[in-house]
Write a protein that binds this DNA or RNA. Sequence first.
DNA 1: CGCGTTTGACCGGCGC
DNA 2: GCGCCGGTCAAACGCG
Length: 158
Amino acid sequence: MDNNYSMLFPCPPSSSYTIPTTGLMNNSQSSNAFLDLKPSNNNDGEDVKGDEGNVKKKGEKKAKKPKYAFQTRSQVDILDDGYRWRKYGQKAVKNNKFPRSYYRCTHQGCNVKKQVQRLTKDEGVVVTTYEGVHTHPIEKTTDNFEHILSQMQIYTPF
DNA sequence: CGCGTTTGACCGGCGC
DNA sequence: GCGCCGGTCAAACGCG
């Protein structure tokens, strides 16, 4: 029953996740901010990035999926947030020389999707977009997650 | 052996 | 009506 989840962090605890901080958020609000993320209905037309012009404009029946964008500064694009993701596609995006990776939660009933994109101007910056909410507990300790959170800048699409 | 990853092709929607 | 773009699924392969 107690599954032993081993660390999936492929990088040493030394320089990888160090953020030079362009204005680090208050540590007292770091982890709490994320946990406080609620499925607030975002207005249709609301976009995390309005530089591409998302064509997903529907706003009809059913509640819309909450979308959150995170900008993380990391050398690796494989940021493990505690859940298991399965890559289901990769597509190149205009305005970005780097391709965007599409991930999906491998959990049954958990149709949470995640998109990871790297900025062309700053390859050290990785933008992760979460869509949907997890309906299951994390598969591994959150300790490291909090650690990363303290180094993440949370962007609220408000 | 299992599953996670990779690449290509296909489909839908929107724009013009 | 056609073209273009983005997004998703599927099959195959590799690795653990």
